[in-house]
């Protein structure tokens, strides 16, 4: 069963923002195909009557009071920044749109 194509892996790499090389795309396509083959078996028992579990220990309503706590100093905030200017994080030009 070959389900995953190189185009699909290239698309996933774009969604995940990883500039994979053509060689990586090719080998990942093969590997993913094998992995997906063996993990697709979850569908065998995942019937509609079974609820999904997203937290292993069920809790709810965990909140924080609306009280101001500690913040980072500007030095701490920027200490690991690859590039900065005017106390802000500097990035290359964005060709796209403002969200």
């Amino acid at each position: 069963m070959s389900e995953i194509s190189e185009e699909q892996v290239a698309h996933l790499a774009n969604l995940a923002r990883i500039a994979l090389t053509p060689e990586e795309i090719s080998s990942l396509t093969t590997e993913l195909d094998q992995i997906v083959d063996s993990i697709a078996k979850v569908q065998e028992v995942a019937t509609p009557d079974v609820p999904a579990t997203s937290h292993p220990v069920p809790l709810s309503n965990v909140f924080r009071p609306d009280v101001v706590g500690e913040t980072l100093t500007i030095e701490q905030a920027l200490q690991n920044a690859p590039e900065q200017a005017d106390n802000r994080f500097k990035v290359s030009a964005i060709l796209g749109e403002e969200q």
Binding site: T71, A77, D86, N87
Partner: peptide, 25 residues
């Protein structure tokens, strides 16, 4: 008074990157 998911202040007009906690970054 604070942000949705962290105790950093929710305040307009502060100096850049001063109302931030590890969560905000």
């Amino acid at each position: 008074k604070t942000k949705m998911f962290s105790a950093a202040p929710n305040e307009f007009g502060s100096a850049p990157n001063t109302n931030v906690s590890p969560v905000c970054l």
